[in-house]
Design a protein around this nucleic acid. Structure first.
Length: 648
RNA sequence: CGGGGCGUAGCGCAGUCUGGUAGCGCACCUGCUUCGGGAGCAGGGGGUCGGAGGUUCGAAUCCUCUCGCCCCGACCA
């Protein structure tokens, strides 16, 4: 049992002005952390206790599937040069020189170190599979540390690496991690989802990120009750069928004069249709991936349902471009042949293949194009450096338009639209692909459950690496046939601090929702709700509670007045009994007013509080369960058993 | 790296525009009272105003440079 009077728990009534997000303010106010520099924090006793508990859970679960190492944070440059990441990591790696001038770095991850061990020690398939993990400080020279512990330059990470002889074995190692991660995050009291992540450039075959929904997060994800979950860049949806318009006239595209109707809203109102019955055109210039000169642009034109938005990441992937910018008016004229507001797919094929510079009047587009192309004798554009650039306009149609008919679309003439536009018949896109952002409430593609869309923070990542490091660093083992083969790897990370941070964020969001619910609707004059929320007041209002598994203490015994010997004696007794029962207990034996103790106990996130006060004369104490926000009176001799049930 | 903001006591801030001996609240120390929701009264301690240079009789305040931190963007195993 710990006594509050003897601990260092520097709580603050007000948060430093630098703190913006809830978890940052609360960690500071609760005395968990103090900032030393941008993205650099000291962990005070409370923070350290909580992180140690998280680490203990991680270690326990990881020991079930692997073995713990501790690898150096200080790495010689050589191994990073071997893997190609000495230059590849760019500015994100802290680098330094020793007294002899040798180059070193502070490791931001440990594939190189672990692979150097593997190549020196692993000889035979009989030694595989291996799962090696460590819990270590990592260093990253973030361009922009922010949000308290959410994005920092030094942090604790559990990282593990698997070595397997073949894909099936890697799949098994990967699955072990998936299962272990689910157990870890569940034990920490987190509500999380595992999303499919991009395994792209790393050449891996599978990757998932474990995410916790919170507005403080930097990623956007979608998930549904069926278990479907994906990054916004990958998420797709099952669309509910749209009723197509009946054809008019002969059913073929019909020109309609639509003076001044340049927006979707104007056009749909004019025709009396839904936005989903209209074709939206979004025209970009995309910078070509890997172009030697740096930025030649390729025209990329996207058509979507009027009520959908382009996801530029998806579109980049389809178009083979790295970055998209809107076309300038001159470029619209050149590549599509119509003015903004009246762009459409019909006839766009005729201008595919590029146009002539003559069509351009002036401006940046002309200058830019003149820097890249010249006109040949026939008026066609030709690249100045003789390179072959895809001049063809890439026309991408979103899958949301597949099978549709009789849509309204721009006619590539000022003040004109077509109706009766039917994809496939009236125009043929270069490619049909999912390039839209999904929307909240759309149905997931697997089970058709409604999806939730929101910001989230990544707390873990599992990844089938393949042979990237084993190959470049020359790790080889003999297989059963006596043949030398390259083992394949997986890598798997967990951000320890992010478990704490996201737990606080999630809980604080719930408390905030309760508070605003208490103030806003029915009872505007409720004095207690108003005073606790202190609208416009100076006292901070954020609150939260952690799961007993990761809170610095599972339980706090609050002696409301230590000058009453019976209360203090009862507190000592109950605290000792709880500790003896294996419950991590803090006795608040400070000579403070009850209100101060209540506030502090809430601030430090302890989930269960035993108030020892007036009712003691009746043999009762109060249990405040912060996770369910309930208060109950308990007979003294039932406290331990009750808490034991709650904690486990 | 681009844009914006801020550095005055442990925390939150005023004072800077218009130069004239550095203030308020909380926290801290002492005493008395109070004692279940961040107590009251009285007394007290604590700041070379981020740093350097300059202008001036005089600089927290004006000028130049510099360091740091926060936010938006870019970037992000």
């Amino acid at each position: 049992m710990h006594r509050w009077s003897q601990l260092f728990i520097p709580t603050l009534r007000e948060a430093p002005a630098d703190a913006e997000v809830a978890s940052h303010k609360l960690l500071l106010r609760a005395g968990y952390i103090r900032q030393l520099g941008a993205g650099i924090y000291s962990y005070l006793p409370l923070g350290q206790r909580s992180l140690n508990k998280i680490i203990a859970i991680v270690r326990e679960e990881m020991d079930r599937i692997g073995q713990e190492f501790l690898l150096p944070a200080l790495n010689p440059a050589e191994i990073w040069q071997e893997s190609g990441r000495w230059t590849g990591m760019g500015q994100n790696m802290f680098r330094l020189k020793d007294r002899k001038g040798a180059e070193l770095c502070l490791a931001m991850t440990h594939e190189e170190v672990i692979t150097s061990i593997a190549r020196n020690e692993l000889r035979s398939y009989k030694q595989l599979p291996q799962i090696w993990y460590q819990i270590q400080n990592k260093f990253r020279d973030e361009p922009r540390p922010k949000a308290g512990l959410l994005r920092v330059r030094q942090f604790t990470m559990k990282d593990s690496y698997s070595f397997d002889i073949d894909q099936a074995s890697l799949d098994a190692s990967y699955q072990k991690h998936y299962d272990a991660y689910c157990r870890i995050f569940t034990r920490c009291g987190l509500e999380f989802v595992a999303v499919d992540a991009d395994s792209g450039a790393m050449g891996g075959s599978g990757s998932q990120e474990f995410m916790v929904y919170t507005d403080a997060g930097e990623d956007l994800i979608a998930s549904s009750a069926s278990g479907y979950a994906a990054n916004l860049e990958k998420a797709t949806s099952r669309l509910t069928p749209i009723e197509d318009l009946a054809p008019t006239g002969d059913g073929l595209p019909e020109l309609v004069s639509t003076p001044g109707k340049a927006s979707i809203a104007d056009v749909t109102a004019f025709f009396g249709i839904q936005a989903s019955q209209d074709i939206k055109c979004v025209a970009f210039m995309g910078s070509i991936v890997g172009h030697p000169a740096g930025e030649p642009w390729r025209p990329v034109v996207a058509f979507l349902r009027g009520d959908h938005q382009v996801n530029e990441t998806k579109l980049n992937a389809i178009a083979g471009t790295a970055e998209l910018r809107p076309m300038l008016p001159e470029e619209l004229e050149l590549y599509i042949g119509g003015p903004a507001g009246y762009l459409g797919p019909v006839g766009i094929a005729q201008v595919m293949g590029g146009g002539s510079l003559n069509g351009l009047k002036s401006g940046k587009a002309l200058d830019k194009l003149k820097g890249i192309f010249r006109e040949d004798a026939t008026g066609k554009l030709e690249a100045l450096d003789g390179g072959t650039y895809p001049l063809k306009t890439i026309v991408v149609m979103d899958t949301g338009l597949e099978g549709r008919a009789n849509l309204v679309a721009g006619a590539n003439q000022l003040d004109m639209h077509f109706r009766n536009v039917t994809p496939g018949r009236d125009f043929t896109p270069t490619v049909i692909a999912d390039i839209r952002n999904i929307n909240e409430g759309e149905l997931d593609p697997i089970a058709g459950e409604p999806m939730r869309l929101g910001k989230a923070v990544e707390i873990g990542h599992i990844f089938k690496l393949g042979d990237k490091y084993t190959k470049s660093m020359g790790a080889r083992v003999l297989n059963a046939d006596g043949k030398e083969v390259t083992p394949i790897m997986g890598c798997y990370g967990i951000g320890i601090e992010r478990i704490l941070t996201s737990a606080i964020e999630s809980s604080a969001a719930k408390f905030a929702a309760q508070t605003s619910a208490a103030i806003t609707p029915g009872a505007p004059s409720s004095p207690t709700a108003l005073s606790s929320a202190k609208v416009g007041g100076s006292v901070a209002t954020e609150s939260y509670a952690l799961s007993p598994a990761i809170a610095p203490f599972a339980c706090v015994v609050t002696v409301t007045n230590i000058r009453e010997p019976e209360l203090l004696a009862a507190g000592e007794k109950i605290g000792a009994a709880l500790s003896a029962a294996g419950i991590d207990t803090l006795l608040d034996d400070r000579d403070e007013r009850a209100g101060v103790k209540f506030k502090d106990a809430e601030l430090i996130g302890v989930p269960y509080r035993i108030n020892i006060g007036k009712k003691l004369s009746e043999g009762l104490v109060e249990l405040v369960d912060r996770l369910t926000n309930t208060t109950t009176d308990l007979p003294i001799d039932e406290v331990t058993e009750h808490l034991r049930t709650l904690v486990n």
